[in-house]
Design a protein around this nucleic acid. Structure first.
Lengths: 120, 120
DNA sequence: CATACAGTTGAACGGTTGTTCACTTGTTGA
DNA sequence: TCAACAAGTGAACAACCGTTCAACTGTATG
């Protein structure tokens, strides 16, 4: 006799009974999952990472960031918008320049943990 | 007189002298940056995250994962390949099934740190 | 006020990515 | 050995993403 957790796609009754419902408990709500993935997506680009690394050393204007990384001001500005929206950088205007600086300390931790992982 | 760190795009001599070279020291090598971003990219997808969450509760075959998350076996298999390549899951064959399980403990830490961040 | 420069922004492009579909591989049991 | 089912795979498609280009805004200085 088939149980509640049986599903048409997989007749795994004998092998993994009741497993799916148990697993489902471990999976966060869809919107949490989405926020989480959006968060990680931001770190999934070398340019944005290098901006964060650079700013972690010294706060800089867009122009200096561009010069540091060898890219156009426009490209940097676009990426800074992403980082701003995610509240990973703060900024203040100083005359003609806008100075950006890192705004979160979690970030360093997360990146360091990741560096630990890839160095294996 | 212009300094070494001056760049044609940004005449910021008077404002942020020598900043760029200082910032550059904080930026890892391009290939490190690339590996790091590739690593984060993997977590940048809700599907892959949910697979990792589910497997963290209980090891499962592809079929059960698909049933748990309400997606096709093919889609799951494709994503598992990504997770396998990044060595974030291990697997063993059991008869007709292939049982997947998480293979790294760093992962839990990183995800939890990220969850801390987004709950603010 | 006009010029110069810092920064932002929207459209467009090329490349990437996740899912679907159809097919293949591999394993078990009749 | 053949049928049935789990899993993996390649091509194709649509959606997404990062950069470039060409504007535009905003601020300081002559």
């Amino acid at each position: 006799m088939r149980e509640i957790n049986d599903l048409p796609e997989c007749d795994a009754v004998a092998v993994h009974e009741g497993v799916t419902s148990l697993a489902r408990e471990g999976v966060p709500a869809p919107d949490t999952l989405l926020m989480l993935s959006e968060f990680f997506k931001i770190f999934g680009d070398p340019t944005r990472l290098s901006i964060l690394f650079a700013l972690d050393r010294v706060p800089m204007c867009v122009c200096d960031i561009a010069a540091t990384l060898g890219m156009t001001r426009s490209a940097v500005s676009h990426q800074l918008k992403v980082l701003r929206t995610a509240q990973l950088v703060s900024y203040r205007r100083e005359g003609k320049n806008v100075i950006y600086s890192p705004s979160d300390d979690h970030v360093r931790d997360i990146i360091e943990k990741a560096l630990e992982h890839i160095s294996e």
